[in-house]
Design a protein around this nucleic acid. Structure first.
Lengths: 247, 247
DNA sequence: CGTCCTCTTGAGTAACTTCAAGTATTGTGG
DNA sequence: CCACAATACTTGAAGTTACTCAAGAGGACG
């Protein structure tokens, strides 16, 4: 549960005690090979899992094979607090790299909420963050040019990787093919390639064996119109507002 | 709270008692003129409100004026159960028509959850539904053609309007300008116009003074690839899975 | 070492946008 | 209730962005 703990404690004060609590919630680990499905659309699942290692994607495929990546999942990301409805999930999740997940005891999550733990507030915050990322995805793909989209996505992914400690100040491992980037941004992979090469030629980024380096962050932000509001980086409150009611 | 009750009881069995409970939660109403903002990005709000009458949009505007509509809000739609974080909201909501909202006492929502009311399950379901709609929006705008997008949106809006009793079997009031449709689908309004005229010429739809009629549903579904999985129309369970735990 | 997948680049094309100008519709103040 | 203004709709023509097709190069993997 390290990545989750790191993510939750990035802006929220969690104690060592909280760390132990989190570790205790983890039931068992599971590994997936690159490309393997972790959850398939239409399945019913009452399980909550956390990405422990590696990258995954939430995605939906149309009948004719067109696929849309909804969002990337990094270590510390959770699927899915909404699971309590016991309904069929409406999208799939696949491993991008080798992925390790931890299945979490959902009862223990619930008791965290019942107890008013600050972990619960942090978990709630992650779902707000996730929704913010989804909304930003809609704006990005709906109203930005290809160039803006690519630059914007790079900045977002770097930031998210950095939060869980998987990236340097201006560089990161980006284990994502241009095909996936295209499926995320609603573009053809050929065009994504051209845009990336363009950004490289202009000296904004550099890519070398899966490591992406941001060479000119200021220009990258300028061309993408990137801002971080949607990530809700102020972090969770120590308690959810409704917890105060119970006191 | 009529529209909310209607929406919740569309697939879930709610008693008259539940109806009264819902009515009792409503604190006060508020009206908005067309175009007026109901909530502005960056505001903090700890209020939950329900659309009682009229249509609204969730939207985000970029610095240079480009606007993306995230989603339409119909009577019975809720903003926003995520509010308990007491954080700044990351998008705005504006009235499209004249809109009446009801502000809801968030404490009473919480006690519904505490009591394990079936209303709580239904409310949770609406948030799952809303997320499904957001995801479908990403797929639609990312991987469908303009023609598919327009047809798809029409079918979705009709379905949602019908659930709250605001539409006939194949016709509905669609109080939405082509400009808004364009901002929702990530297209120019000129192109939306051409696509709509095309669909009319081919006899798939008809529009007359704000009333849209679906003339050939089968073809409309065929050209759009529409399916309703994302609306989670099986509806909420009577109880959330975690409520069983508490028993 | 060969196969498969990803990346790269060019050339031609299709989908959608922008610009522009005119028409209908809706709202508003006298 | 009418006249006028403002907004939304419609259509054409030209331009641009991004797509498709194609073919070769570079890497990863068994």
């Amino acid at each position: 549960m390290q990545p989750l703990f790191r993510r939750l404690s990035y802006y929220s004060k969690l104690t060592d005690e909280d760390g132990k609590t989190l570790s205790g919630m983890s039931l068992r680990d599971h590994s997936y090979a690159p490309g393997e499905d972790i959850i398939r659309r239409g399945e019913k699942t009452s399980q909550v899992f956390v990405i422990k290692q590696g990258w995954a994607v939430r995605y939906i495929t149309l009948e004719d094979g067109r696929t849309q990546v909804l969002n990337f999942m990094l270590p510390g990301d959770i699927f899915d607090l909404q699971v309590f409805l016991d309904d069929e999930v409406d999208h799939s999740v696949a491993a991008v790299t080798k992925v390790t997940t931890t299945v979490v005891n959902s009862d223990s999550i619930l008791s965290l909420f019942a107890q008013g733990s600050s972990i619960a507030a942090a978990l709630w915050w992650t779902t707000v963050q996730e929704e913010g990322i989804l909304r930003e995805q809609i704006v990005r793909n709906g109203r930005r040019t290809a160039r803006e989209r690519v630059a914007h996505l790079i900045l977002e992914l770097h930031r998210r990787a950095r939060i869980v400690g998987d990236a340097g100040a201006d560089c990161m491992e980006l284990p994502v093919s241009q095909i996936l980037i295209a499926d995320c941004l609603g573009l053809s992979f050929v065009h994504v390639n051209r845009v990336l090469r363009g950004l490289e030629k202009e000296g904004l980024i550099k890519k070398n064996k899966g490591v992406l380096t941001i060479l000119d962050r200021a220009k990258l932000i300028e061309t993408s119109g990137y801002s971080e509001e949607h990530l809700h980086l102020n972090g969770p409150p120590r308690r959810l507002s409704f917890m105060a009611v119970a006191e």
